[in-house]
Design a protein around this nucleic acid. Structure first.
Length: 106
DNA sequence: TAGATGACTAATA
DNA sequence: CTATTAGCCATCT
């Protein structure tokens, strides 16, 4: 299984109402240095509709910014629908929403 | 083959 | 928390 596939698997496992960082995902997979590659995996050709890219944020708790999957506004709306609150700076409370690394089999 | 790029992170101030 | 610097590595040109 390639690195990309692993990324997709992990992202798909993010529970609703929670988020994960790129570094977090990379760590779960077992390659903490490839945080950037995780971003790459999502940017390149994610399984549209299968991988919840909107739940993946950077370590600041901020969303991707540039292109996402239809627009930043949609992304924010989706997260809000899942119960995630954005602060005035357009960021989310990682303390509360960051997903924990449950028993990963990777 | 080499150099530049980027949906990043950790360390430091 | 913000800003800056350096390290990282698969892809692109």
């Amino acid at each position: 299984m390639g690195f990309f596939e692993k990324v997709y698997e992990v992202v798909k496992r993010i529970p609703k109402g929670k988020v994960a960082t790129y570094g977090q995902i990379a760590r779960i997979i077992g390659e903490p240095r490839k945080a950037k590659i995780v971003g790459w995996a999502l940017h390149s050709n994610p399984y549209k509709g299968i991988v919840p890219c909107h739940r993946v944020v950077n370590r600041n708790g901020e969303l991707s910014g540039g292109f996402a999957f239809g627009g930043m506004e949609i992304q924010r709306k989706l997260l809000e629908d899942e119960g995630i609150i954005f602060d005035e700076s357009g960021r989310i409370n990682l303390r509360k929403y960051l997903r924990k690394e449950n028993g990963s089999e990777y």
